[in-house]
Amino acid sequence: MLLCAGALLPTSLIAGELTQYQANYDILRKGKNHGEAVRELKKIADNTYQLTYHSNIEWMIFSDSREETSKFTFQNGKVTPHHYSMIRTGTGPDKDYKIDFDTQNKVVTSSSSEYPLECEWTDDFQDAISYQVQVREGLKKGETSFSFPLIDKKGNRRDYNFEVVGKEMIPLPIGNVDTIKVKRLYDNDKRQAIAWFAPEMDYMLVRMWKGEKGTEQFEVQMNSFTVTQPTAVTAAPTPVQQ
């Protein structure tokens, strides 16, 4: 087991570009493993990236498999989403929908609606996973609070608000990691969500915890991480594994 995984990862990346990577996670409930998740970021064109998040969960008679994809541009430190899709299968109703952000005409469209969604446009829109990239960029600049407007498939606006609540060294399958602890702010105390980002790993999301009414729903812990782009140090991928 690595004593400090972050110290082994390169952080001198190409200026103005995002780190391309693949991160693997264990999904836990009450300390027991009930699934796995993979987060991957790729550059697909100039200033254009694709973020995917794929998870599989099995717990008693419950199952959930989902894949989310976000395509966005990244310029001057700002993430601008253009296309989001989500496919979910398992226990309960399946879901499959797409949302497009037309920045030129300033409209949002959904595969579940024949017409553009009735929502007031803002250049600050994020989709359901692109905001996570923007949080990382904010943390790099030393920001301590974040607020993002998201639009769901019906055109409803949901404001996601976060604040930095401290620093913490946490034990993970990859070793002990120094992190910045970020809490999501809800309108009430019934739900809780906390995320840990590792500065020495280019502010990667290394752990996430969600609960409701004080009871844990699930926890996600990074178990491996690979940089998938050339860096100023070496052109080879840099794996960090258990």
Rank of each mutant, 00 (worst) to 15 (best):
A235C: 03
A5H: 10
G31D: 01
N176T: 09
P81E: 10
L150A: 02
G138C: 04
V165S: 10
D102S: 06
E58L: 13
K167H: 15
W59Y: 15
S55C: 05
S224L: 03
N188L: 07
K213C: 07
K181T: 14
Q217N: 11
F148E: 01
L139P: 00
G211A: 08
T144I: 11
F146C: 03
L51E: 04
S55W: 02
S12A: 10
D187Q: 13
T11V: 14
T122E: 10
D159C: 08
Y186W: 13
K78F: 03
F225T: 06
D26L: 11
I180S: 06
A37K: 11
I99W: 12
R184T: 13
K42P: 00
E168H: 05
P149W: 08
G90F: 14
T48K: 10
K95W: 00
D202K: 03
R158M: 03
H82A: 04
E36W: 00
V220H: 01
S113K: 09
K190S: 15
T144N: 06
P171M: 09
R29L: 14
L51T: 01
E40P: 02
S112M: 13
C119P: 00
R66N: 14
V108D: 08
D127C: 05
E137R: 11
F74R: 02
N76S: 07
T91H: 07
V233C: 10
I87Y: 08
E36C: 00
P199Y: 10
T215P: 00
T19Q: 14
T215D: 12
T69F: 10
F148W: 00
L41Q: 02
T179S: 15
N161D: 13
T80Y: 01
Q242H: 05
I194R: 05
F197C: 10
S63C: 11
L28A: 06
I44V: 08
D124M: 02
G16V: 06
A15C: 08
Y186R: 08
G16N: 13
Y160V: 09
M208L: 13
